[in-house]
């Protein structure tokens, strides 16, 4: 009897430590499925962030490095420049990539590093206790914007995919979401495509994945997915912002 769904080989059997309903787990699985489908697990090196995904090295069944906060793209650059034939990815949250690590991600893209970045945007700092992220929506309440993010004092959400898509070295830039089964499937395709772009040697690839934080949003897992679809997607539109010229666009 063929399995229609089973645990990807590129995940270890260790249970995730994430909160109930946190979509980090779905995104981990999509990354692992892409690694499996491309049959590159044994030549893949992942770099995990500081933040909720700090223990990702326990979950991905491939060589893994835990990087300093925001520095994963620089660490991945070091790995890839030493081992150009390996598949190197970073897995980063919005605080890690879009706040403290903005310089590292922008310049990894500018150099066209042949790495793949999975950017998990849930509009909040999860691990440290629900503080404002660079991607927090205007009006969104967090522990450091208790009355809602105010443009005057706290600025506006950073649209990372759009920003990175202005960089020539960033060959593949897309934004996907995981708030419905259909979107999960499309997200999986985009992640796989990002790894394929790396394998083709064309340059830097990044997939921004809109994700939830039921705990710090103060919503049930189901409500959180609904909130994502209704509030985040309008601010962070889904789609491919940059594709290799030869590639055909896919739906996101």
């Amino acid at each position: 009897m063929p399995k229609t769904f089973q645990r990807p080989q590129a995940l270890t059997d260790k249970p995730f430590h994430y909160c109930p309903g946190c979509t980090h787990g779905i995104i981990h699985r999509l990354v692992a499925e892409a690694v499996d489908q491309l049959a590159v697990r044994k030549k893949t090196v992942g770099v995990c962030p500081v933040g909720c995904a700090v223990f990702a090295y326990d979950y991905f069944n491939c060589d893994m490095i835990q990087a300093a906060h925001g520095r994963a793209p620089a660490v991945a650059t070091g790995v890839k420049r030493v081992l150009p034939d390996r598949v190197v990815f970073t897995y980063q949250g919005d605080g890690d990539l879009a706040a403290i690590g903005t310089a590292e991600i922008v310049h990894a893209a500018a150099r066209g590093e042949k790495i793949t970045t999975i950017f998990v945007n849930n509009a909040i700092y999860g691990m440290t206790g629900g503080q404002m992220a660079p991607t927090t929506l205007l009006g969104q309440k967090t522990t450091t914007t208790p009355h809602g993010r105010d443009r005057e004092t706290a600025g506006s959400p950073l649209r990372v995919a759009e920003m990175l898509s202005t960089i020539d070295g960033a060959v593949y830039v897309s934004r996907v979401s995981v708030h419905s089964p259909r979107h999960v499937r499309l997200a999986g395709r985009a992640i796989k495509k990002a790894f394929e772009v790396q394998l083709s040697g064309q340059g830097f690839s990044v997939v921004e994945v809109l994700s939830t934080c039921p705990t710090n949003w103060g919503l049930s897992p189901r409500e959180a997915l609904k909130w994502l679809g209704e509030n985040m997607v309008p601010v962070f539109p889904l789609g491919e912002f940059r594709t290799p010229s030869a590639e055909e666009a896919i739906e996101c």
């Binding site: 520095r71 620089a74 660490v75 650059t77 790995v79 030493v82 390996r86 310089a103």
Partner: peptide
């Protein structure tokens, strides 16, 4: 690198790669 911060982390990655 774009900064010394980045340079030392590239060193981290390259050293990790052997």
């Amino acid at each position: 690198a774009e900064s010394e911060v980045s340079a030392i982390n590239m060193v981290f990655g390259a050293a990790a790669a052997g």
